[in-house]
Design a binder for these strands. Structure first.
Lengths: 171, 171
DNA sequence: GGAGACATGTAAAGGGTTACATGATTTG
DNA sequence: CAAATCATGTAACCCTTTACATGTCTCC
């Protein structure tokens, strides 16, 4: 449902064609929502079939024609409804990558430290990438801000963990 | 892969049967990993087929017999491998419920406030539930601690948002 | 004797990903 | 003229969820 909400929200913000949406997803939003190309096209087609969005064909020169989607009144209703539902239906984050943290302690310190350091690097990279995206997408500012705070929490956690493991291996 | 890692880690910690695992998942770990009953059984069967775990049947009285699973050497290898991979493969949290935050601003303040307040209540409830679980599952202490920090980030964010919206609607 | 806990699953349907397919156009 | 970009999708496969199925035991 979150994928549909996001796509619908994008189109609601400004008319868009599939390729353009996929570009956006790949370049900036992959940090926040994971929607692959085929899924995006499938959902766009589904929403068209359901009458939530409609499209006009646009062609520039001899390029393959684009389907430029706009939201319909029915789609606007759906958007409003899903948005309200979704705001209240908070469910825990289910970070698949968090499960491994449960079993950290099975690894010896000398193996653990490089792994945690690499993990920290990844989080830092994501934070950097988030910063880039933030500048381009003023409309989605809140979403980026929210994600940033979670990344920062993750970074702090990882750094604390590294410090703890180091302290133990020295002591 | 995280579901398998978790199940494998549970069994590695102590021999367990399916029902028991599902009870644990339902009562304490649903906040952290989402594995439904059928999925748990399927994965247990799959890991058995792959030789990662083995089971002995145990029967008490005339009750339906239990399959008590233990990890095999092959399973231990898999566990070690997946754990290392998974620690380093950090990927963004993909909270499905976060997407809606992008479109907060489409709602008028008088509708937004109750929704946000309800969302805050949900987060607080999850924090409380996490506290209960923490006492029972000392082995998974790190995982709970990690999740707690993300919940607290979420709570802070939500409270800030509520304050912001209130300030705006007053000013 | 009925409700709820104990114990294991299957079936159907939906949703997502990876890899594949197609063809024109611009850029180096 | 080759490579990347533009533009849209399909097919096969895998994974997950919801609902269904089955039967015993214990407690009230």
């Amino acid at each position: 449902m979150d994928k549909i909400l996001f796509l619908l929200g994008l189109i609601r913000n400004a008319d868009m064609y599939g390729y353009q949406i996929n570009e956006l997803l790949d370049s900036h939003f992959d940090i926040i929502v994971s929607i692959t190309r085929p899924t995006a096209y499938r959902l766009l087609n589904k929403m068209t079939a359901d009458g939530w969005i409609s499209f006009r064909e646009e062609q520039i020169g001899n390029r393959p024609p684009r389907k430029v989607f706009s939201i319909t009144p029915k789609g606007e209703d759906a958007f409003q409804k899903i948005l309200r539902q979704s705001l209240v239906n908070y469910s825990p984050s289910q970070q698949s990558s968090a499960v491994s943290l449960a079993f950290l302690r099975t690894l010896p310190a000398d193996e653990l430290l490089p792994l945690l350091t690499e993990r920290r690097r990844l989080v830092q990279e994501l934070l950097r990438k988030l910063g880039e995206g933030e500048q381009h997408q003023g409309d989605f500012h809140l979403l980026f801000e929210h994600q940033r705070q979670h990344f920062e929490t993750e970074l702090t956690w990882t750094e604390d963990m590294i410090a703890r493991v180091q302290a133990e291996s020295l002591g």
